[in-house]
């Protein structure tokens, strides 16, 4: 039969493991089969089902840029059964990956615009994909600003990349930690993301705001963006809900009539406003 069993994952070898923060790791994954690598492609915003054979599958975004073709990366926090099994993996181990699933950040529609990325905690990974994607196509966009906050300095993920982004002339990076989360030599901001956003007051003209973070951060960030003049169509975010299949069959990730796995995970604030609060 030439049709594929959609539940069968690609086999991926863990090429590199980076400890990002306490309990948070990034895996760089390479396809075991070269043919899989050649036929695979994805776009910024999409996600996949990562699995440990014998433990099960877990859903996270693809955290690397689609412009980096020979590998994919994922970043996860060790929390449940599958992420604990993943966390105990070593470089060289083979894990499963199904995907890519879901919709995308419409990067092509944002050509010529300024991009404002606002992320909190472990929600930088879904944004990292689109940040690198935009940086790899740097000339197509206007100003790129990244505001990233975490509870404490040690909770900031992608520390090397933050350094790299901070040292670039063509990116404005603002990092912040919650009050009390700073170290003596912390040079960034102190304060919650929405407050820092309000203080820095970025211009909304010709700008797209991309917001990813814990629900409470999102809740307080939207009104600030609203005050700064961002319209509902210029604010993007991603939703996450519990999923099993990733392609609209297992029936649990829906928010009203919208499936996060098929219609999302990327939504504009306007779309979000039309949905019930089932996320």
């Amino acid at each position: 039969m030439d049709e594929k069993n959609i539940y069968v994952p690609y086999r991926m070898r863990i090429e590199k493991i980076t400890q990002e923060a306490p309990g948070v790791k990034t895996f760089r994954l390479k396809f075991v089969n070269d043919e899989d690598a050649l036929s695979f492609s994805f776009k910024a915003g999409q996600f996949g089902e990562y699995s440990i054979f014998g433990a099960g599958e877990s859903t996270f975004c693809i955290a690397s840029s689609p412009t980096r073709k020979d590998y994919i990366e994922c970043t996860f926090r060790q929390t449940g059964k599958v992420t604990s099994a993943l966390a105990s993996c070593e470089e060289g181990n083979v894990i499963g990956f199904r995907g890519p699933y879901g919709n995308i950040f419409p990067l092509d529609d944002w050509k010529g615009k300024n991009l404002l990325f606002i992320a909190g905690g472990i929600a930088l990974p879904p944004m990292r994909c689109v940040i690198w994607n935009a940086l790899d196509r740097r000339s197509e966009f206007g100003n790129i600003t990244i505001l990233y906050g975490a509870r404490t300095v040690s909770d900031l993920v992608y520390k090397h990349e933050l350094e790299e982004w901070g040292s670039r002339n063509d990116v404005k990076l603002i990092t912040t930690v919650d009050p009390g989360g700073e170290t003596p030599d912390w040079k960034g901001e102190k304060g919650f993301v929405p407050a820092v956003l309000e203080k820095m007051a970025p211009a909304s003209a010709n700008t797209i705001a991309i917001v990813c973070g814990p629900p409470v951060m999102i809740k307080y960030t939207f009104p600030v963006l609203d005050k700064l003049g961002f319209t509902d169509d210029t604010i993007y975010t991603t939703l996450e809900n519990r999923m099993k299949c990733g392609f609209g069959k297992c029936g649990r990730c829906n928010v009203g009539k919208v499936y996060v796995c098929k219609d999302g995970p990327v939504f504009t604030y306007r779309q979000l406003k039309s949905l019930p609060a089932e996320y």
Binding site: Y7, F53, G56, K244, K249, G251
Partner: peptide, 24 residues
């Protein structure tokens, strides 16, 4: 009703991934 769960079961080095009925 067609909602389902996906579960792994292992016996040593081998096992199965299966789909089983679930309920909202």
């Amino acid at each position: 009703c067609s909602c389902f769960d996906i579960q792994d079961e292992k016996h040593g080095k081998e096992g199965v991934r299966s789909r089983c009925w679930d309920s909202c």
